[in-house]
């Protein structure tokens, strides 16, 4: 893999959360690269560490409970995790922006849209005049498809619909033309039509300003539509990484296969039973030894409890990794 093409490099990222009794490892040895102009999807069940990955990169983990204990996040030859706080302020929002799942609560209810949008220009372009900032705000709102932006700037978040608010969030995130956009379940709280509009909008804007997107979702449909490459996470680990087409055509990890089988399809006969993955995600407080998925896996053998599978690259397909000791025999 051409390393000069790599924009963001995450190595061995391990994050723990401190509870009253003990500390829980919610992210274990996560390693991946993000390339220029690429859309990288991160998919997995609730609590598998998708959002924590994003927050760890942004250094926005809830303090003091959440802590990155190991690993590096390299951006522009610098480790974001060891940057000074002041330096980090200049990266957040300007170089790496983030949008969140819940547009209802992600905007401050007591401030007007114009104020919240204007803050970004104040922070990152303090030399900008009031009028310039106002013009830029209208410009960006138009770009994200908000009608009569002049009026919207004077309104409060509760006067906007969910889709509108998410557009405002996108406008905020893109106002500095960041290199990387981290979108944490940006469409989960929206209805399907709005979801589609937002996804289209993100794709258009991505091409326009040539940024990379880390797209966090539990919706494989969204992944198929939006992403170039996919990371599948399970219980704080990456279990499989692959280009999106390969993942859908030839999934290697039993968990990925299970996920794909559990999507309802048009061609299955009506009223037939939907395939599911039996069982629940293991409690992160006491993770079973060996493979974390084995208790729910149909292909568990004795060795699965002995070896802890690491993500191994697959042949010359350098973009693919899978963390399963039996993947070869299972795929053949």
């Amino acid at each position: 893999m051409a390393s000069k093409d790599v924009l963001l490099k995450v190595d061995n990222l391990t994050t723990t959360f401190q509870t009253d009794e003990d500390s829980i490892t919610v992210l274990d040895d996560v390693t991946f690269d993000l390339h220029h102009g690429e859309s990288l999807g991160i998919v997995g069940e609730s609590g598998c560490g998708k959002s924590v990955t994003a927050l760890s990169i942004m250094r926005l983990l809830p303090k003091p409970a959440g802590q990155v204990v190991k690993g590096t996040v390299t951006y522009n030859d610098e480790n974001l995790l060891s940057l000074s706080r002041e330096k980090m302020y200049t990266i957040r929002g300007k170089k790496i922006a983030m949008i969140f799942q819940e547009p209802m609560t992600a905007l401050n209810p007591v401030h007007r849209i114009g104020k919240q949008l204007g803050e970004i220009y104040q922070i990152h372009f303090p030399e900008m005049s009031e009028a310039e900032s106002h013009a830029a705000q209208i410009d960006i709102l138009e770009k994200v498809g908000i009608p009569s932006p002049e009026k919207r700037l004077r309104e409060y978040p509760h006067q906007l619909s969910g889709g509108m608010r998410q557009r405002v969030m996108i406008a905020m995130a893109l106002s500095c033309k960041p290199d990387i956009l981290i979108a944490d379940e940006p469409t989960t709280a929206l209805d399907v039509t709005t979801q589609n509009q937002i996804l289209n909008l993100m794709r258009e804007l991505q091409q326009e300003i040539n940024m990379s997107i880390i797209f966090i979702t539990h919706d494989l449909g969204v992944i198929a539509e939006m992403c170039d490459r996919v990371i599948v996470m399970y219980a704080g680990r990456i279990v499989e990484q692959a280009p999106v087409k390969d993942l859908f055509s030839t999934p290697h990890h039993p968990y990925t296969k299970g996920l794909l089988e559990s999507i309802p399809r048009l061609e299955t006969p009506p009223k037939s039973r939907l395939e599911i993955i039996e069982g629940l995600v293991p409690n992160l407080k006491n993770i079973p030894e060996g493979c974390r998925f084995r208790s729910r896996c149909d292909f568990e053998v004795e060795d699965c409890s002995k070896t802890d599978p690491k993500g191994e690259p697959i042949g010359d397909e350098s973009h693919r990794t899978v963390a399963c000791i039996r993947w070869q025999e299972l795929s053949s």
Binding site: R92, M98, L107, N108, V110, I123, A173
Partner: peptide, 27 residues
């Protein structure tokens, strides 16, 4: 302080202190 919009403000690049004063306090 734990509200989403404070996190949004931080994600914009706002300093923690400013986020407390401008966003959390008013609410």
């Amino acid at each position: 302080l734990a509200a989403d919009y404070v996190r949004t403000a931080m994600a914009k690049g706002m300093e923690f202190k400013t986020a407390v004063v401008k966003h959390a306090f008013r609410n």
